[in-house]
Nucleic acid binder design. Structure first.
Ligand SMILES: [Mn+2]
Ligand SMILES: [Mn+2]
Ligand SMILES: [Zn+2]
Ligand SMILES: [Zn+2]
Lengths: 154, 154
DNA sequence: GTCCGGGCCGCAATGTGTTGCAATAGCGAA
DNA sequence: TTCGCTATTGCAACACATTGCGGCCCGGAC
């Protein structure tokens, strides 16, 4: 029995989006390079959020010659493919959502420094308010809202 | 008739918050310096929003020796006094609200690159939603929400 | 007017992100 | 396999923001 068949029967989940990355990249006339492979290897080991700085460090563990500009440019590419999505922390620094499934934003408390995810259910109010009042469709994932959490009032 | 009396009778508006800055600074045991004077002179000529970069340039017009770090540190001080308030543009760069009267946020359209103010009336929905659902009190002025405007849908 | 303590400045280094450019190297075609 | 087009890389320079530190100077005391 071939491997492909065994794998197909092993679960209902399809192939990881990362597995398709190489084909999707080449399909666009773009090229599959060692640098891109390294970054994707790093990304597929993580989930949730990462800063670009941390990604650069992890890439450098695997390939000492990693260059920041290449990583940033590859992240732009992966964002075009929808494999990552960047936002900005409270201080404006970039953060990447890995394989963003449900779009969510972030809340940051200036009192205690904690960050929470702003779930779509809660964010929906914001999205709907701006849509109905201004015809503006919000991209929650790009936003970090600052303020004070329940435990840090005044 | 002394000048003070003439000025007092000239209008109903109180003194500009900038006029009190020097006293408020010294009252805290802090010092009134030429560098701080220069920045405040620049700020009192403008209203609305400014980037730190532009403030540095304007200061340098008056004083060629202006240094970025001093401007940034003075902006921090003025923010503590409530005379300015910083937020972040869609790309994370700092923007300053000068003499923030009503707190407002910003909307940025990724389609056409336009920025709008998010008026308190509209922002109120956001503030209230997060307050009631999460006990989180939002600081709208620190936020730029990205998305697409009515004219740029899909 | 002089002195003195400590707040402030300028500098240099660091962190983070972007961009132009010349050389390299994918990859499809022959 | 080799060739050639061009996407991509690495570098250097730049833009923006923050921080530690040594020396300066503001401003209250006398
Ligand atoms: Mn900020
Ligand atoms: Mn952004
Ligand atoms: Zn808190
Ligand atoms: Zn638009």
């Amino acid at each position: 029995m071939p491997h492909a068949e065994m794998n197909a029967g092993a679960g209902v989940t399809g192939p990881s989006p990362w597995d398709q990355a190489v084909d999707r990249i080449r399909a666009g006339g773009l090229r599959w390079t060692p640098q891109r492979r390294t970054l994707i290897e790093v990304l597929r080991e993580r989930e949730g959020h990462v800063t670009a700085t941390e990604l650069i460090a992890r890439c450098r563990e695997r390939d000492q010659t990693t260059t920041p500009s290449t990583v940033y440019r590859t992240l732009d590419l992966l964002e075009d493919l929808g494999l990552v999505r960047h936002g900005h922390g409270h201080d404006g620094r970039e953060e990447y959502h890995i394989l963003p499934q449900e779009v969510h934003g972030h809340l940051y408390c200036v009192g205690c420094g904690t960050t929470w995810e702003l779930r779509p259910e809660t964010g929906a109010v914001i999205v709907e308010a701006l849509a109905s009042q201004l015809g503006f469709s919000v991209d929650l994932s790009h936003v970090t809202i600052s303020g004070r959490c329940a435990g840090c009032h005044d």
